[in-house]
Design a protein around this nucleic acid. Structure first.
Lengths: 131, 131
DNA sequence: CATCTGTTATACTATAAATATAACAAGCAT
DNA sequence: ATGCTTGTTATATTTATAGTATAACAGATG
């Protein structure tokens, strides 16, 4: 799987890595049970430090995306990702609010906003299994 | 206008303040031409440092939300907020992508996601002018 | 036994966030 | 003219996070 990082971006590297892996799972380029590179080889591949990779992995583990076996390595959660619960949905809404407030101020209509959301959903539903 | 800050939140204070003001504008509790408290009185009101308020104001100015006159003080942009342009829309889509990828993984449907967006839009359209 | 795994520990640098003072310059009211 | 308020600028300090650099440990596996 191809990992794209933007070192100039203000977003921390380990967050970007986290998001790239989540996108990979969403697009089904990464499937349940599949292995991820070890912290060391992933770090070497993308040219960052081992600890930065580990930080991303620990967060993904915390969120139920992956399992980490002490010696076997890292695998995408075979049981799939935990489904969105109430707390998750509340946090999601809280996260979306600033973007929507901003859009309202800038006269970007609800229709257009939702059109963008739909187009992003389509990205994930259509690119299933592609490289 | 009531400003609500959560000092425990990881979100920087100046960002929270910025968002609160933007929400105020979206809800039309704050209208074009209206004055905002000086950096000093705002800082005293909400119990933070003058520079933290100034940082929020500078960002709002940069984004076209407010005008700052050297001695007259701070006012909501009388001409209204600049409308969303192409660059803004691209950035918005890039910002939404991680949330949507996450939702897809967690089996949260496009319909439900959009329902949340609509409910937030409704918050702003319905509470116009309320305290 | 050597090698690979995640893990832990320590140290260092760089940056951002927030605060604390202090001072400056321009307008305005009395 | 004298204060007062305005945003602005400058300096300094503290705290926390991000990222890197090494090193070592513990448990499997070949």
């Amino acid at each position: 799987m191809l990992i794209q990082l933007d070192l100039e971006n203000a977003e921390p590297i380990y967050i970007q890595l986290q998001q790239q892996i989540i996108e990979g799972i969403a697009k089904k380029q990464l499937n349940p049970g599949e292995s991820l590179p070890s912290v060391r080889s992933m770090a070497a591949d993308i040219g960052i430090n081992l600890h930065t990779v580990n930080k991303a992995y620990q967060h993904l583990k915390q969120d139920g995306y992956i399992l980490i076996h002490r010696q076997k390595g890292v695998v995408i959660n075979p049981d799939g990702v935990p489904k969105a619960d109430g707390a998750y949905k509340e946090k999601l809404k809280a996260n979306l609010r600033p973007f929507i407030a901003d859009s309202v101020c800038r006269d970007l209509s609800e229709e257009e906003f939702i059109k963008y959301c739909s187009s992003i959903f389509a990205e994930f539903y259509n690119e299933e299994g592609d490289s």
